[in-house]
Amino acid sequence: MAEYRKIYGLGAQFESAAALMKAAEKIRDAGFSKWDVHTPFPVHGMDKAMGLGKSWLSTPVLIGGAIGTLTATLLTFIPSWGIYPMIVHGKPFNWATLPAFFPIMFELTVLFSAFTTVFALLIMNQLPKWYHPVFNWERFSRVTDDGFFIVVEARDAKFSETKTRALLEEVGGSHVTLIHD
């Protein structure tokens, strides 16, 4: 008896980036939301073809940058004004020393924004991830070479093994395959 394995979704291969783009527009218009395209290289305009909208990455980066500025401000002002006032290079230790602290504020803003970008990106993409069901599909290994793929996940409310298969074939997909988890 075959081992029971959950269905992850349906995968289809496409001829080119252009064919994939057109197919993506149709899958988008069919109202699917839990699906993805896989290509060997970035395809400009794919976000629009998939109906992804604006990424929300900018919000965490802004918050990270603001925290960086604040950290630098406190890091420089607390010692200079409060706990360890000292004249360095003949510069005063009141607010007029501000220009000397700008480079630190700038650097920490950039550093914190960069860290937030990297880590928010990893979280948004659910990385690192040691296992993904699409690699159970042998043909999918060509995604790093010359393969263009669409994978519609079974957890999408509109998913139907027969209807989605028909749709993927209709939009030009070949080798439509059921992928198991």
Binding site: S16, A17, A18, M21, V43, H44, G45
Partner: peptide
Amino acid sequence: MSDHSHEI
């Protein structure tokens, strides 16, 4: 890069 030139 995009391959929509035939539409324009």
